[in-house]
Design a binder for these strands. Sequence first.
DNA 1: GGGCGCATGTAAAGCGTTACATGATTGC
DNA 2: GCAATCATGTAACGCTTTACATGCGCCC
Lengths: 178, 178
Amino acid sequence: MALEHAILISLAERSASGYDLARRFDASIGHFWRASHQQIYKVLARMEADQWVSAQVIPQGSRPDKKVYEITDAGHEELARWLAVPTPPEHVRSEFTVKLRALHLLDRSLVFEAVAARRAEHEQRLLAYEESAQKFFPSPADLADEQLGPYLALRGGIRLERNGIEWCDEIAHTLEAR
Amino acid sequence: MALEHAILISLAERSASGYDLARRFDASIGHFWRASHQQIYKVLARMEADQWVSAQVIPQGSRPDKKVYEITDAGHEELARWLAVPTPPEHVRSEFTVKLRALHLLDRSLVFEAVAARRAEHEQRLLAYEESAQKFFPSPADLADEQLGPYLALRGGIRLERNGIEWCDEIAHTLEAR
DNA sequence: GGGCGCATGTAAAGCGTTACATGATTGC
DNA sequence: GCAATCATGTAACGCTTTACATGCGCCC
């Protein structure tokens, strides 16, 4: 159950409304833990009941009211506790790889298309990551302490996409060679 | 909803009982799509109702009866249909990366431990994959058509673990340098 | 006039994990 | 005696996705 904790980390950086969090998830943490706004609202309600966060309603005139959440002391404690617990091994869950296993049941041309499409996705994300890196961490040698984590996370994303691209190329080459 | 289809692929290779499938998932497909036996039994029941598979009960004397499932024509059709549908982009879901983002909230020594533990997991899986590769695909240049998919899937696993190890090393080096 | 952004949710259904349940055989 | 392997499930719970719902303001 890590969505709670992902939200705590995000709120520890800066207080935010559910809507803000949803956008933040789209933009940054979401690269490693996706969450919809519906889910975020539900979890926030539970977290408020558990007093990990406290909310303040801010009227905004024409726009709908905003509920800005802030992490509480109890929330910080829970976050520290969770961070210290060893992370269980993660399992890959890849529909693409499942399909790949059965490639002989499919037209070769369709396989090429699928691999090309996946490669393009990797490339697009890689580009986005590299732009983020350039923008937020132009000088990685001298990062502030709080930036180190986000920087290394982004590095992981970049590695993942590059690796994905290389794998797609290997698949394509292997298929071409027959 | 890919478990159904992962099972169809497995049954297309060879008929099997739920128990067999569970072990097969532990050993091979499970590297890319984990499933518990409970889940497999539940899904098999639904697939039988949908007539994607048919079951034959085999008494075994002392041992409990076996229900061996076989893919039907409708199952093959469904599998072909599904294989041809473009795979939606996959999202990473990594608790480790979420934690990594908040590394500044944790003792440096705990971070090193966590990274070392993760590196060890990668290394262990890499070793297992490389043994599989050696054992099942000793001569990748001349593979049968049906082996190509499993081989390339395994290659993906090997790449993933190597990449994970390199990332762990990068994290450790970056942290040591400060 | 239509679509997008802001802002918050409810409801239903499906998917997945964990715990529980049974019972014989084989190996240490 | 104890654990593991074979073999199949049920039940409860929690997480996730998808669909539905509302309503104003801004821009083209």
